[in-house]
Computed example of a mutant assay.
Amino acid sequence: MLRAAAARLRPARPWRLAAEAAAVAVALLVAFPLYWMVLSAVKPAGEVQSDRPRPWTLEPTLDSFRRVFENQDLGRYFLNSLAVAGAVVVASALIAFLAATAVTRFRFRFRTTLLIMFLIAQMVPIEALTIPMFFLMRDAGLLNTLGSLVLPHLAFSLPFAIWMLRGFVKAVPEALEEQAFIDGASRTRFLWQILFPLVFPGLAAVSVFSFISAWNDFLFAKSFIISATENSTLPMALLVFFDSETPDWGGVMAASTVMTLPVLVFFVLVQRRLVSGLGGAVKD
């Protein structure tokens, strides 16, 4: 006990202090754009457009947020974004769970080739596929619909989700599955009542990435929702405040802040599962 107490009283090693200082510096660097976004949202218009920006304000105001919430279509944009992100999260989690179970538990031809194709799909830039996907959505009659936003995000989120969940499914001992069959459990019952709860941390982790990708999307929303403004999503609301001659930067930053809040709420709700999911923890 005395040795443990003495060890706690010893000064930290220089390399550890340096690592902690570097971590704090990186965290501050990453958080600074968020701070500047919120700061610009509460600054008066004169300070936002000033040639000498300051990292503080002595006259905070909510005028920019008032202009955002006065937009009558904001509620519709919010519901559209929620519908798209929710559909992508649920569908990608369900399909990825079943696909990860299949490629892990079953032996079939071209299984390795299929996994390699998942990796290759992740390497293709989204921008390079936007124009071909536009023609694909046009030929399928999905332009100006929310389906044209759900399908691309689902396609891009599935390879990462399947690869991540594959490790969780593989970590569950096969002996557990055999024991469940001996006890009379069917394959379906084992899948949903035993395997699903064990890989749920991984599902939470991939759901966060799928939600953020679909919620913050501007490229597909701008490309596939051309004339039907009633199907526009929340990122499209930024265009209301952007004018090439006199852009309302306060309104843009306020709308961006409002758009970020649901992501933070979703992250807080699943943070415990996310941490264990990224750590690859599987409870027995």
Rank of each mutant, 00 (worst) to 15 (best):
A41T: 08
G86N: 10
A140V: 03
L143F: 12
F156A: 15
R76G: 02
L74I: 00
L98I: 08
V270K: 00
R107F: 14
I126C: 14
E70A: 13
V26W: 09
L2I: 06
D284M: 12
V169L: 13
I226F: 10
A85S: 14
Q179Y: 02
R138L: 13
T113Y: 08
F160I: 04
V103M: 14
E70D: 09
Q271C: 15
D73M: 05
A19T: 13
Q193I: 02
G167P: 04
V150S: 12
M123P: 01
A100I: 04
L234T: 14
G141S: 15
L219E: 05
G46V: 03
G86Y: 06
T188C: 06
A185R: 01
V48T: 08
R109C: 01
F135T: 04
V150R: 03
M137Q: 03
L34K: 03
V265T: 00
E178W: 07
E174M: 11
R67M: 06
L234G: 15
R10P: 13
P132T: 02
A255T: 12
T112F: 10
P53I: 05
L115Y: 00
R107Y: 15
P159T: 13
L94I: 11
S64F: 01
A91R: 07
V275G: 04
A5K: 08
G250Q: 04
L29H: 09
F32K: 01
L143Y: 11
Q193H: 05
V84N: 11
V206I: 02
W36P: 15
F242S: 15
D217I: 02
V169H: 01
L234H: 05
P44K: 02
G75K: 00
R10V: 05
P152F: 14
M117L: 13
A23R: 09
R166L: 08
A45C: 00
L2K: 07
F134H: 08
V172Y: 06
F110V: 07
S256V: 01
L129R: 12
F69I: 10
A128V: 13
S81L: 10
T112C: 11
A281F: 07
R111D: 01
D217M: 14
R54H: 07
L143P: 02
P247N: 09
E20A: 10
A155D: 14
S256K: 08
A5G: 07
V42T: 01
G147Y: 00
S213V: 09
L158P: 14
W56H: 08
E20R: 03
I225F: 09
I116M: 00
E59R: 10
A18H: 11
P125F: 13
A31E: 07
H153I: 10
I182K: 11
Q193G: 04
K43W: 03
L203F: 07
I162D: 04
R76P: 00
Y35K: 08
V48F: 00
F65T: 07
R187N: 13
G202F: 03
G147H: 01
S64A: 15
L119A: 15
A180R: 05
L269A: 11
S157A: 12
